[in-house]
Write a protein that binds this DNA or RNA. Structure first.
Lengths: 228, 228
DNA sequence: CGGGTTGCGGAGTGAATTGCTCCGTTATAC
DNA sequence: GTATAACGGAGCAATTCACTCCGCAACCCG
């Protein structure tokens, strides 16, 4: 055993690459989780990140550890979005912005791992905080008369989870149909708009973006040439 | 080889049981697909149906054949619901009833197998028919001024698919939390109501059922004692 | 009761997949 | 050049999968 303190501290030579890899891994994990659900494999995550399996396992000792990290980051995003929502002047815009943000950073893709990983103390704490923030957002919107008086924060959570995964989008991604992704994204925003309008006391304007095409719905069923 | 025509045709002795098994298998397949997605295994389906694997494979030569049958039945349900919707006097009630019906018989749970099975001619034909029916439903509701003028039939299809799987409900089922299933069902109906209201030109009444409890959202994360 | 038929259940099989380890290789610092 | 830190991915044991095979039970008719 050598004394680790011997000699002056050296800068890790390839530290920057390691950091980039870490970010790539987390992003890839989110994508693969969205695409494959509970099925998601470590190999797929590493491959998507363009990183060797070995590097993944140097950074995270187990698959569970990676997923726990992902949960913490998602809770942070949730809380950030909630705080931005509370900072908005208009209560409705605040709530709608919050929901949209959660849906868009892929909150829903974490649902499949619920119950499969241990909940850490850190996760629980951040989750408590997120409950408070959401309650505040909802209360404020209701007091302003912007949303139905009988929706509860849990309704909103469930709604975020429901919108948070997009069957069409995820599947097209799984099939590697890059050509349809943009259209699917537009279609999804329309669905979100519709749902959010159902939350309001008053109705808003027209649906955003171009109307979705049939192809979106039918081409998924063509026999799937594995994207590998 | 014996001549199969020798002797008088005999009634199959245990034909009734076979038929019951078939129905159980199809129902189980739907449930397992909803719970496990593309991950769904033949063994799980047979077990859930309370039927041996051997019996499953006598009825359907392959997994794909079972799934294809399931698709055909789902398309039938879809078309039946659409026809009932068109038969309703009120255009809005017709469309809303159709969407609700599709969501409730689990249309969404078939999404994960898109691209994994070959589309048969029968499926394609029934699918064409369903497109016509849906277009008629939407047109009628729009001409009556009941729904936003800019929603398209594809929007509705996507909306059904989005609502057709309930992350919470499916996951609780997977975990065997029978105690929370009713609550999750109520919560889901509230989400559906909200979304459908977002479709309408006018807003409807209050949300149905009891407000969802926190437990619905939190207990899923408790470490999962495998239901086996 | 007995012979014959029909459907049943599930152990077993080979192939594929999984989480993870181990080690030879490559890039950087001095 | 040499030391070091991070890399990629072949390989491993364990599990999972779709599917086969066969012994057994339920039922019919005489």
């Amino acid at each position: 055993m050598l004394d680790p303190m011997s000699g002056p501290r050296r800068r890790a030579p390839r530290q920057a690459e390691a950091e980039r890899n870490d970010r790539a891994l987390l992003a890839a994990a989110r994508e693969v989780l969205a695409a494959d659900g509970a099925h998601a494999s470590v190999a797929a995550i590493a491959a998507r990140a363009g990183v060797g399996i070995g590097s993944l396992y140097r950074r995270y000792r187990t698959k569970q550890e990676l997923f726990q990290r992902l949960c913490v980051l998602s809770l942070d995003s949730w809380n950030d979005a909630a705080e931005r929502g509370l900072a908005a002047q208009d209560p409705w815009e605040g709530l709608a912005g919050f929901v949209t943000a959660c849906v868009e950073f892929g909150q829903g893709s974490l649902a499949p791992i619920a119950g499969l990983i241990e909940v850490t103390e850190e996760m629980r704490a951040k989750s408590d905080r997120s409950d408070e923030l959401l309650a505040a957002l909802v209360t404020r919107a209701q007091e302003a008369g912007a949303i139905r008086p009988d929706v509860t924060p849990v309704d909103i959570s469930l709604l975020i989870e429901q919108l948070g995964s997009s069957p069409v989008l995820d599947q097209l991604r799984r099939q590697g149909r890059e050509d349809l992704l943009a259209a699917a994204g537009h279609a999804r925003r329309r669905i979100i708009t519709i749902t959010l309008d159902g939350l309001r006391t008053i109705h808003a304007g027209p649906l955003p973006g171009p109307a979705p095409t049939e192809r979106l719905f039918t081409e998924r069923w063509e026999p799937h040439p594995d994207p590998a």
